[in-house]
Design a protein around this nucleic acid. Structure first.
Length: 193
DNA sequence: GCATCGATGGTG
DNA sequence: ACCATCGATGCA
């Protein structure tokens, strides 16, 4: 049976990035394309804590690329990297603080067969690209929902691929559902039983 | 299973 | 000259 789900309100996204990143684990990302509705369970996120965070693009200040990060929460920040991948973030926190949450992995729902393990694959499978950059993603076809599911456990680890970020490298700002088989990376192994 | 490498283009 | 990645390749 399918649980009833509710859209997450804007107030949810006004919290700091580390809070939102943790709370998004177990929630649902929805992209309504009209002909079909793509849904996945979020199992991995990362928090980027604003200009002081040396891993965050916002640490470069306001540029053409990062200006969206300094705007109001609830909008998408989608950027292109390594010549082939689009990364999907949501701007959170107070406007101007440039907090953001990167969506790193999800589990396909509704019998959908897709690989959403890793940020590039998640964005591609969910059909999110640079055309969504700056778009409001609370009430529109792209939004987040809560169906009442709660992971048994949520674990924080260091973030992936930010070795240049000095003392921010080891900060536990990556959040995962360790029970999911769709988490990316190799930094966390569940303890052997 | 794990390590290494190259694709490929936006960015400052 | 990098880079919030991924898939292929080599070797075990």
């Amino acid at each position: 049976m399918k649980r009833r789900s509710k859209k997450l309100p804007l107030t949810f996204f006004k919290q700091p990035a580390d809070i939102v990143a943790r709370e998004l684990i177990g929630k649902i990302l929805v992209h309504d394309l009209g002909t079909e509705k793509l849904r996945c369970r979020i199992v991995e996120t990362e928090a980027y804590m604003g200009p002081d965070d040396l891993a965050s693009h916002s640490s470069k200040g306001v540029t053409n690329r990062t200006k969206i990060m300094f705007g109001p929460p609830g909008r998408a920040y989608v950027y292109f990297i390594y010549g082939m991948h689009e990364m999907f973030n949501i701007i959170v926190g107070e406007a101007g603080k440039a907090h953001a949450v990167l969506l790193r992995a999800g589990e396909p729902l509704d019998g959908w067969h897709a690989n959403l393990t890793g940020p590039g694959r998640l964005a591609k499978a969910m059909r999110i690209d640079r055309s969504h950059n700056g778009k409001e993603i609370i009430r529109g076809p792209l939004h987040f929902a809560d169906d009442g599911f709660r992971p048994n456990q949520i674990i924080a680890t260091p973030r992936i691929g930010i070795d240049y970020a000095k003392h921010w490298v080891e900060r536990p700002l990556r959040f995962i559902d360790p029970a999911s088989k769709h988490v990316s990376g190799k930094r966390y192994k569940p303890p052997a039983v």
